[in-house]
Amino acid sequence: QSVTKWRMQALWGGGTTPMLYEEKFCARVAELTGGSLEITPFAGGQIVPSAQAFDAVRGGAFELMKTFDGYTAGKIPAHGFSSTVPFGFPEPDQYEAWFYERGGLEMARESYAPAGLTYVAPTVYGQEPIHSRVPVRKIADLKGLKGRFVGLASAVMADFGVSVSPLPTSEVYSALDKGLIDIADRGDIKANFEEGLHEVAKYLILPGVHQPTTATSYVANTRAFDALDAQQKAALAVAAREISGTLRQNILVANGEYIKKFQDAGVEIIDFDPEDVAQARAKAVEAWKKAATDDISKRMMESQIALMQELRLL
């Protein structure tokens, strides 16, 4: 039996928790295929910068990537809705349900297909927090603050009165430290504690409405994917769905553990009122509509809104 060898460019930094899960993913695929599909994972930036992986897989330098669709939302508007939606689904299970139960997966595949790429499956997990130097107790308090947000969230936060600066991730710590900005998003709760944000921002705001849930995705080069046999394809799908659940649960537990660490470091945790968030969501829909500029993105947005209405989120 011949062994198929793949390279996978992931978006996470080497040694980080999510990167460990990518290594588990590769090990699991090898196990499920009896060793017939060997995937070597590379950490973000090790070979190509994370945001450029789309073209590297398209061009055939890698067979697979673990990416964040938001990187390509400037090319493919649908990717704004298959990555993270500001004020979108508050629970990762709801977002994952949209993928598997309400056609999200099929629409994501449709969005990648013309590029010669095959969307395999998402990894869905929960909120990223907002860090602030000043107390922000309700959405209305955001008005007049200087903040750092990226992607669609920057437009939505601007709608709520935040002056948004597009600072690079590496500048967040010092920008908060020096008071260049008042509030910022960065990564998940654990990663931000390890970055030391508790040293520079005394308030941590939950839920992270700018990024309540996130989907990263396994995307393969279509030619390479089509050359796999049925067992190998199934193994990718199974391993991906496993990782989605296990990483999400790992983050869930880590969030609790690290919120405690933030508190011990003297950071005040502020919880937004769910009613306040729900009202703001109705306003955020306006920004979603502006971002949905083609057929697939409109269908994605509408099916998400429909599910949110059924779940009484809107």
Binding site: D55, G74, I76, F149, G151, A158, P166
Partner: peptide, 20 residues
């Protein structure tokens, strides 16, 4: 890659969102 960027009308997806 440049042709592709042109035909997609690729933008930076930031608050300013220029074509790139």
């Amino acid at each position: 890659l440049v042709m592709q960027s042109f035909s997609y009308g690729e933008t930076s997806y930031s608050a300013w969102n220029p074509i790139i």
